[in-house]
């Protein structure tokens, strides 16, 4: 599972970085989305990989070792929401730039 996750993060981040460095605004925004997926997976993996473990303790005699770390999951939720909002805002600016300059180059000219 570690290998699969590491590969997934690596491929997502690599493609994302490549796309962010491209000259078209649409490529940049897709690249940013891919990087955000990679970052979210990475945060999750920092809570150590566990399968079949619930994040929330139940009962007073529960052993914390049987549970997954809930903090990274909460962080990922926050990061997803913020990343989503920022990407939406970026999309609006991108459309405005398209309207002003008449093309989709990040510098406004080909």
């Amino acid at each position: 599972m570690e290998l699969t996750l590491a590969l997934a993060i690596g491929v997502l981040a690599g493609s994302g970085v490549y796309l962010v460095l491209r000259p078209r605004t649409f490529q940049v925004i897709i690249g940013l989305s891919l990087i955000s997926y990679a970052v979210n997976l990475f945060i999750l993996s920092m809570g150590r990989l566990r399968t079949d473990a619930a994040p929330i303790l139940s009962g007073s005699d529960a052993n914390p070792a049987d549970y997954a770390d809930p903090v990274p999951q909460a962080l990922v939720l926050t990061a997803i929401v913020i990343g989503f909002a920022m990407t939406a805002l970026f999309l609006v600016v991108m459309l405005a730039a398209r309207g002003f300059t008449g093309n989709d180059h990040v510098d406004g000219r080909n």
Binding site: T25, G83, V93, A97
Partner: peptide, 17 residues
């Protein structure tokens, strides 16, 4: 402004990641 903001937002999104 829109052109500068486009760069500014992209840079800061990467910085946030």
């Amino acid at each position: 402004q829109v052109r500068a903001a486009l760069h500014y937002i992209a840079i800061n999104l990467v910085a946030s990641f």
